[in-house]
Simulated scan of single mutants.
Amino acid sequence: MRTERDLTRLDRVFARLDRESQRPAHIDVPRMSRHRVVLFSATLAFYLSIVWAVVTTSWLIRLDWQVMFFRPYQQWPQIHAFLDYYVVLGQRGPTAVMVAAWLGWRSWRQHTLRPLLTLAASLLLLNITVGAAKLGMGRLGPHYATVIGSNEMGLGGDIFPSGHTANAVVTWGILAYLASTPRARRWLSALSAVTSLGVGLTTVYLGTHWLSDVLLGWAAGLLIMLALPWFEPLIARAELWLLDRRDRLRERLGRPIRVPAPAAPVGAPTVLKPRSPVADESARETVGAGRVSRPPAHLAPGPHTARSERTPVTPAGSRRPPHADRVPRGTAPAARPLAGG
């Protein structure tokens, strides 16, 4: 009994996804424009320059060690408790659950799997690119540093680039990427930038990352967001494939496939021509000739007296008490008997 109810709910979800014609038409799919290609190229150059600066033990390494010896968590201990919770906005598990819940509701409302598939594609790219860079460079964190002034590369670490920072850029940036209006996209882009900036600086404050780790994490997350339009055709094909698999599974289970009814065609607009008063009068007479005349709905049936012969009334009744000796207006009063002797 429970399994049957769950299947019915799943059918309702996919029934909404079948209504392709009801998707909002104003939601456009981002394209890889020339402006986006320029930003992608500049971010990639920044990414490579950070890696080169760390590998060659340049001034950036000296800055990393200066910040580490400054120990921000000892300089401002009063905000330590708050930042311990704030850094959760960069953890992959909790943030992915929160954003997936919101995008699942968006998929339900827009009758499309694209929001959830876009989130899945961005997280997959994040795990592949950032994970490969972490394992490939093997840098140790500030708490495990061995030689003062060294870049700590190739020692089996996994903190370069910062996964918290890159995850914050991608997870919260996907909300701006999927925004339905330009204004919402601008506001969400600013909000995601501030959130990821705060998460990156929080990891430096807590001493879990070098400053160069955070810089590379920002660049890594931004590269994924800028490259997403290249994967939009793949996301569209994945959506069609999932819906086709759903239909095949439904056929195997012997369940009917709901096909959305085609929308009724919209006919040509009807032009109303003005009619002459003579035509209106003749049509009124023709209609009235075939009907039995009846009093209006707000009048009681039967003969009606003239207005001058009626006592003014209100919804509460007559305003004047009836008088037996009152006669209608316009008639001669009856002769009265003469009083006296």
Rank of each mutant, 00 (worst) to 15 (best):
D6A: 14
A42M: 13
A220E: 02
W52I: 00
I128H: 00
M225N: 03
L126A: 09
F231L: 15
L272K: 10
V327Y: 11
A193K: 01
L197S: 11
Y177T: 11
T286Y: 08
V313H: 12
Q66V: 10
T331N: 01
L126T: 07
R258W: 11
V88M: 00
R9N: 06
G302F: 10
A316R: 15
W102D: 00
L119R: 11
W65Q: 06
G104L: 15
E309A: 14
T165S: 10
R336N: 03
L89I: 00
Y73N: 09
H143I: 01
R237P: 02
L272I: 15
P24L: 05
T3F: 12
D244C: 03
L178C: 11
L63S: 13
R183F: 01
V38M: 11
M98R: 03
G138T: 07
T208P: 00
P30V: 08
P233E: 11
W241Q: 14
L39F: 09
H143M: 06
R336G: 07
G254T: 05
L175E: 07
L125D: 03
D247K: 12
L228T: 09
S189H: 02
T165L: 09
T95L: 05
H143C: 00
L249R: 08
S58F: 08
G156Y: 05
T305Q: 13
T305A: 15
D84I: 01
R62A: 15
P333C: 04
L103I: 10
R71G: 06
T286R: 14
R291E: 11
F70D: 10
S150L: 00
W59R: 14
L222V: 01
P274C: 04
L253T: 02
A324H: 06
P328K: 03
R246G: 02
L39I: 06
S192K: 06
L188T: 09
W172P: 02
W108P: 05
V29K: 15
L272A: 14
L216C: 13
T57M: 03
M225K: 04
Q66S: 14
V327E: 10
I27T: 04
R9L: 12
M137I: 15
A101Y: 06
Q22I: 04
L242N: 07
Y85L: 09
K273R: 12
H26G: 02
L17V: 13
L191E: 08
T195R: 03
Q22Y: 04
I50C: 12
H143K: 08
L44M: 11
G288D: 08
A176L: 04
F231H: 12
T202E: 03
A236N: 13
Y85E: 05
F160T: 09
L242K: 07
D244M: 07
S41P: 01
F14V: 13
A264G: 01
F231V: 15
T57G: 07
R319C: 05
A190V: 12
R114T: 15
I148Q: 02
I61R: 07
S308D: 08
L48M: 08
A264W: 01
A45V: 12
R307F: 06
